[in-house]
């Protein structure tokens, strides 16, 4: 095998999953959410297409029906998680100053807020409060 240049053993290197401390988790979660989003995006586009031209009462009723609600919530969860990971990469690629941390935090706040707004609205439509 290759010559060992460090006093650290190979086990010690992998034990804490590299400098990012998370190993391939980010890469993998981006892929898993991407795979989930293929059928969910198609379903989302079909749901929106079916709602074009309908008034508020009909839209609220359809969006609040169990199947549509669940598909919409799955779409919202997958896409906000996927875009959280994606924007993190964009920020890390282009921002190298100390403000990077601020932008990363703002990214987290934005994605969680959007996710919560959407889920709250869908649940409110479902339970009709």
């Amino acid at each position: 095998m290759s010559k060992q240049r460090s006093m650290r053993t190979p086990l010690a290197r992998v034990r804490y999953l590299g400098s990012a401390k998370s190993g391939t988790k980010h890469f993998w979660h981006q892929r898993v959410s991407a795979v989930a989003l293929i059928p969910l995006t198609i379903a989302f586009v079909l749901i929106v297409a079916g709602l074009i031209g309908r008034n508020h009462a009909a839209t609220a009723q359809i969006l609040g029906s169990p199947f549509v609600s669940i598909v919409m919530m799955l779409f919202v969860i997958s896409s906000t998680y996927h875009m959280w990971l994606g924007m993190q990469v964009i920020i890390e690629d282009y921002i190298h100053s100390e403000s990077k941390l601020t932008w990363l935090i703002l990214n987290t706040f934005f994605c969680f807020t959007i996710a919560l707004c959407c889920i709250y609205a869908i649940l409110k439509l479902s339970f009709g409060v």
């Binding site: 919409m72 959007i114 707004c117 959407c118 439509l125």
Partner: peptide, 19 residues
């Protein structure tokens, strides 16, 4: 991808308006 990120504001607006 970045455009869709901010496009979710429209999605949230749509769902909150319906609710």
């Amino acid at each position: 991808g970045a455009a869709l990120y901010f496009g979710t504001l429209l999605l949230a607006w749509w769902l909150l308006a319906a609710a």
